[in-house]
Structures are given as structure tokens and as C-alpha cells.
Write a protein that binds this DNA or RNA. Structure first.
Lengths: 334, 334
DNA sequence: CTGTTAGCGCTTTCAT
DNA sequence: ATGAAAGCGCTAACAG
């Protein structure tokens, strides 16, 4: 890793400190086994030489790399950066390093990545909304695996449950007097969409609201804009969108028809990836994706320490964040 | 990396194929040295056993890990995800794996991260807007380093030059008849802000526009909202904001005063991190951050292959993307 | 408490 | 074209 002259090794430190290499090793990994003085001496000389343990060598020797991989479909999709951030932060706490992988949902890339990680990660945290269950199971067979937002029984997973947030959202809308609302979905096959869809159906029924369901395959601005035409004349006064990006597209599509949010129609989004940075600020359902990242890594940690049984299912709740697009109740000063 | 039974090793493959371990090694790293048949045989049995080389072992043996680290201040800041994506994509092309590090601009975290990477990365790509030059130089001394958006002579760097885009923006505004514009800045100490500020100053002078400069320390929505009060009554008809997030805050601040974008004032943002996903869609200066990520990794690649001299300075241009917030010229259909 | 020794999985001379 | 052997930097018994 050094430019000129390689990084100092354990034996150089040992020689400089006048001890055996293994003592240097112990000074770092099991200081309890050494006298305070030797530890101090060793650490001092190590510091002086600018030594730090070579992690590849440690990995090879111990069979544990102290690395994990975080594999996501698209780093740049606003859902993931907070997830990554949370994962990285949690990894930091236990001195793990995190590899990042981007699959674009492409099976070949996935394979390649995982192969490339082999021998240098202890486990992988995987977000793969579209991957078939069996494939996931196969991976889980080969290595410690934690899933994000995929509910595959038998595989440890952390799930973000939109139901509570959606419940609040629907209650909020019902309370504002809306009787007929629309749900503009996301990728039909994704676990999240199924889950959100069924949650809103239940909530709408519970509050006696009519629900218009707009299917939609892509979680994009453009898709949101297009979706608007499907609800023209449907008489809805409020819309719930699958995510923030779609919601922005919906705003644009409505604006093109001279319908203004929230003046003419109320809008609730999901995920809260954009909400704070947008005008009008989105009323949205917080997705906790940073927390999910943390949870996933923490779960991985438990698994690697085998402090945990096989089939863990960690569910995070959600809640409604009322800002401007849902109208009525005076929004926070903003 | 396996759950039950460790991953197959080179010698297991060797035994199964009836050859020497070193031949297996060669089959993967230097197939030219072997007869076609042996290579085929070895690859086949490797495949059958599900073997792939242990990268830690390779790293230890060769002194090259094939990994690089990408260290950024905040993964979740919308500027970085595309950068990360680009870096990862480029790394993929040369079979590199990418570690991700988040510093929050905290020196201790930086140190920790870099130390943690030691021995398992060949180099690091660093984005650190606030780090003192000397510190950066010190890092560069210790390891192959590529900088993003920091212009430290002697250290290889890739820079995004906002000047062209800003030039276009100012010309565009001047062409729309604006005579008096404001620039709402970002973190004063950052290279980007200095660079954008001087670019806009020159461009304004060139077009004979009056320029009101609004200093501002934070690149946040709230900061943008606050900044609006500084230009009240300044008579500006157009605003250029340091980045998209600030721009959104500006829109909110203006809206609070019943000033509407673009009806009453034109707005140009920078970075194009939010532009596509927002309403009204921001006219903004594309920052090419994905390209910058690619370039940085590609540069690192060159450096590691020492195909390149010391002091490289790779500059990416920018351009104006006209959407809705700058008014007048009919925006794209959307 | 600390030194000795034998690998971890792979690459790389050096032989043949 | 392939085998044999040493060693990358570190850890983990095992002695003492």
C-alpha cells in the first residue's frame, strides 16, 4: 500500500521493539494476554513505524476478513444512499469494511460481483427486489446472507413495513374529508409494491374510502407523469404514490392539466427520499432506509458471531411525515 | 465464505484434476503458460467444485489486492451517489472491488477508515472538500491517491469545471433579458464554490450583468430558504444557486413571499442531482459526477499500472441543462 | 507472560 | 509444459 518502501510488517515492529512477532500480533488482537508494559512498548514502536496490521494477511490466517459486501440494484436510486450510509455507519462501529456492489438487477453482474468478493468478505447484505426466491436461497446456502426488503422465509432479512405509515396516511386523508383516493403503484413484482398495495387496500376499506388502483411498472418520474392520465375523471381527491420520485412525476402531470397540489388534490408519497429537499415539500411515508441499513449490518454481525438463530425476520415500522402536499392541516412552519 | 464446509482451495482443485497446485494457479492467472488441454481440464474441474480464487490469498502473495477504496464525506448527499455509481462501474470493468467509506468530514473517521483499508486496497479515491492540502499531500505520500474536486498540485485529481456550464447559464439568462442576477453560494472553503463563484463573476462581467453575491455556508434546503431574505429588494430577476438542494430551498423561500419560479424570477441550479425528479424541473448545470467517478477510477487504474506520470489533472466540462425554472424559452414538452 | 512453530491459499522462482 | 518449494504477513496452538 505504500508508494516507496512497502508498509511495515509485524516482524519489523517486532525487531524494533525487541520482541517476538507473535507478541506484536497479540498486542493488537489479544492485549489481555500481555503485560501492560509490553503492550505499551509494542504499540509505541508500531505507532512510530506507522504500522497497521495487514488485513489480507489477517483474513488469510483467521479465515475472517472483517469485510462485508453490500449489493444493491442501483446505488443512485435515492432509496439506497441512506441505506448504504446506515450500513456503513453500523459497519464502522464493529470495524467492518464494506464493499459496494451495483447490479442493475443483472444476474451476470451479480454473479461476477459475488465471485469477486470471494475470500474477502464474511457475508453479504443483499437488496434485490426482482431476484427469484430460489436464487436467493441458493446464495444463502453458499454464504452468510442478509436480505433487505425481501421476505424469503429461512433467510435472515430486514423488512420495512409500510403498513403503519400507510395506515396513518389513509387516516389522515380520511380525516381531511377525502372519500375517494388513488394508489399509483410501483414495479408489480416487487415485494414493496405488493405490500404497500395490500396495506392501502385494507386501510381504505377500514375507513370506508373508495380506492382507485393505478398499476405502473417503473418507479420513475416519467411513469408518474403518465400515470396521471389514468385517473383523470376518476373523481379522486387524493393520491398515494409508490415512492417520492413517482410522486414528483404526478405533480408534474397534474400541473400539465392545471391541477395544483395540494390546492386541488392531496398527495402522499412513500420513502421520504426527496421530501425534505423539494418544493412543495412532500407529505410522505418515512421508509427508515438508513435504519434498515444499520439493522441489516447489525444482523449480519450477529449471524457472524452466531449469536442468532437461522430464520430472523426483522421488521421496521414506518410513519407518516406530514408536510405540504397533503393539504389542509397547517404544515409545519417549513 | 461458505456456511458449511469452507470454499474449495486451489489444492483441492489440483487434486481433483490430477495436477499440481501451481498449474491451477497458472490456469487462472497465466493460461498462456499451459497447454490448452490442461487449462480446459482445470477450468472444468474448478467450475464443478465451485472454486474461485481466494482474493485475500492472492493479495498477500502478489502484494496487489485488486481493491480500491472510495472515500466520500456523505454517501447520502445527492452529489455522491452518481459518483459512486460511476466509480463502481468503471472498477467493474477492470475487476476491481470498491470499498465505500463515509467520513462526515471527520478526521478521526478518515484515519480509521484508511487504516482499516490498509493492506487490502491498492489505492484510494478521495473526495474531501474541506480537508487541508497538507493532509491530502501526506496521504498521497503514503499511498496511491486520486482526488475528486480538489485541486492539489502534485496529486492526481479529477476536477469538474463548472465554468463552461456557468458561462452558458449566464448567457442564457442575459439572452432572456435579465440584467441583475444573484449567486447564492455554498460552503465558502470548498474548491467548488470558489470555482463557481469566480466563474459566474467573470461571466456576469462579460455579459454586463450586475451580480449580487449571497454568501452561505451550508449546502442545505434550509440554507437556501434563508438565503432568500438576503436578496429581497435587491432587484434581481434571476438567481443562480450553488446546488440543486439549495435551489429547492430558494424556491420554497420565494414561495413563502409569494414569488413564483419561473413566473416571477428565473432560477438556475448546479449539479443536476435532483433536476429530473422534481417539479418544476430545475434548469441546472450538469455536473457529470458519474463521469467523474469513472474518470477517477480509470485514472487510478493507470497509476497502478504506472502508465502515467505523477501530476495528472483531469478536467471534465459541464453544460447547462435548460428545463423549467429558468423561464422563457419553451421548456421541453414535459 | 512470551517465544517457537506451523500453516492460511496463492504465486513464483527454479528445476526438470 | 508442469512439478517442487519457498514465502507473502499474520495467527494460533504449543511450549516453557
Amino acid at each position: 500500500m505504500n508508494d516507496k518502501g512497502r508498509a511495515p510488517t509485524i516482524s519489523q515492529v517486532a525487531k524494533a521493539a525487541g520482541v517476538n512477532p507473535s507478541s506484536v500480533s497479540r498486542a493488537f488482537s489479544h492485549p489481555e494476554l500481555l503485560s501492560h508494559e509490553t503492550v505499551a512498548l509494542i504499540k509505541a514502536t508500531a505507532e512510530k513505524l506507522g504500522y497497521s496490521p495487514n488485513r489480507s494477511a489477517q483474513a488469510l490466517s483467521t479465515g475472517r476478513s472483517g469485510n462485508i459486501a453490500l449489493v444493491v440494484p442501483d446505488v443512485a436510486n435515492p432509496f439506497f444512499p441512506p441505506l448504504i450510509r446506515g450500513a456503513q455507519a453500523e459497519a464502522d462501529r464493529s470495524a467492518f469494511c464494506v464493499f459496494i456492489g451495483n447490479t442493475d438487477e443483472d444476474l451476470r453482474k451479480e454473479e461476477l460481483l459475488l465471485r469477486r468478493f470471494s475470500g474477502q468478505v464474511d457475508g453479504v447484505v443483499l437488496a434485490a427486489p426482482q431476484m427469484p426466491d430460489e436464487r436467493i436461497r441458493a446464495y444463502a446456502e453458499r454464504m452468510p446472507l442478509v436480505l433487505v426488503n425481501r421476505d424469503v422465509p429461512g433467510v435472515p432479512r430486514v423488512l420495512i413495513d409500510s403498513a403503519p405509515g400507510i395506515g396513518e396516511a389513509v387516516a389522515h386523508l380520511a380525516g381531511c374529508g377525502h372519500r375517494r383516493i388513488a394508489y399509483i403503484g410501483g414495479p408489480g413484482t416487487s415485494w414493496s409494491n405488493k405490500q404497500r398495495h395490500s396495506a392501502i387496500q385494507k386501510a381504505a376499506a377500514r375507513h370506508g374510502l373508495a380506492l382507485v388502483k393505478v398499476p405502473n411498472q417503473l418507479p420513475s418520474y416519467e411513469a408518474g407523469r403518465q400515470a396521471v392520465q389514468s385517473i383523470e375523471g376518476a373523481g379522486v381527491t387524493a393520491i398515494v404514490a409508490f415512492d417520492d420520485i413517482i410522486a414528483q412525476g404526478v405533480i408534474a402531470g397534474l400541473a400539465a392539466r392545471n391541477i395544483e397540489v395540494p390546492r386541488d388534490v392531496a398527495l402522499v408519497a412513500c420513502d421520504d427520499t426527496l421530501g425534505v429537499a423539494t418544493y412543495p415539500r412532500l407529505t410522505t411515508i418515512s421508509n427508515q432506509s438508513e435504519a434498515a441499513g444499520r439493522a441489516a449490518v447489525s444482523l449480519m454481525n450477529d449471524i457472524l458471531g452466531s449469536r442468532v438463530a437461522r430464520d430472523v425476520r426483522y421488521v421496521l415500522g414506518t410513519h407518516l411525515v406530514i408536510r405540504m402536499t397533503s393539504g389542509v392541516p397547517s404544515p409545519p412552519p417549513d
